[in-house]
Design a protein around this nucleic acid. Structure first.
Lengths: 140, 140
DNA sequence: CTTGACTCCGTACATGAGTACGGAGTCTAT
DNA sequence: ATAGACTCCGTACTCATGTACGGAGTCAAG
């Protein structure tokens, strides 16, 4: 069982070595200590999963800063539960909002696909219909 | 009814003037022609909506390049329907996938919130559980 | 017809998120 | 014990996405 070196982690996570190191610098993943005997750092298996999570969260429009916050949410005895709870609820609001927006786009795309293949010119339907202007009810 | 100048558009869309101009340069929104009489450009009302859409799509993790593609999808007689349909379907796949990922995070947050307030130390539950490793079934 | 606010345009600067490079050390297989 | 592959670390470069600046032109009100 070969030790988990940085290149193994990177490969498992589907990123480059430099990216792993970049996330270490940013505090998104822990840099394991160098073994006292000297030599290469050895990574726990979770690091790969953690990086995968980071990448997916990025695809969902979270910044590394936000992802760091997400990752710091965990129920363990050491952290103040009420605080974690509150931050989790804030994040939950964000993702719920994003899901709603995304569903708007999904619906618009489905409508577009449905409208398209019929014959030539049905309605002109734009993706922008996906957004229901929230505040644009002001004239001027 | 005062003409829609660039600052009005920006305000309506909730961005700065420079951002509008930046999107014009990038081809994400059309730059209206300068009136032949000279003077300031006047913008159609849709520009504001369009920019709002751009910002929302960005929050959902789409790049400007991708958003440009999204915006170019529309069923109108001028464009090849089959082509539009195909591109729309690709995009639909992407957003559907994103929704699934986002729901994973949503569920994890809900679980976290539910686990938290009970007493002190219930399970340690990490957000990373949100991701079901797709390919990590390889050992080594 | 002048003043203050706004537009236009080009260019420069900023920030987030990597990516690349290079030299020195380490590990492993032959 | 040496070659080839890999690690470590610092620094520098890149690319996307804006933001800021500055000077010249324009507009509308007093």
């Amino acid at each position: 069982m070969t030790a988990m070196t940085i290149s193994k982690v990177a490969k498992k996570a589907g990123v480059g070595i430099e990216t792993v190191r970049f996330y270490e610098r940013k505090g998104l993943v822990d840099q394991p200590p160098k073994p006292p005997s000297g030599g290469y750092r050895v990574y726990p298996a979770e690091t790969g999963e953690r990086i995968r999570f980071i990448r997916q969260a990025q695809e969902l429009g979270f910044t590394l800063r936000e992802i760091k916050e997400l990752l710091s949410l965990r129920t363990d005895p050491a952290t103040d539960c009420a605080d974690v709870r509150e931050r989790a609820q804030t994040k939950l609001g964000e993702v719920t909002r994003k899901i709603a927006l995304m569903k708007g786009i999904q619906a618009a795309l489905e409508k577009l696909i449905a409208a398209c293949p019929g014959q030539g010119a049905l309605q002109v339907c734009s993706i922008i219909d996906a957004i229901e202007a929230p505040e644009t009810t002001r004239k001027e």
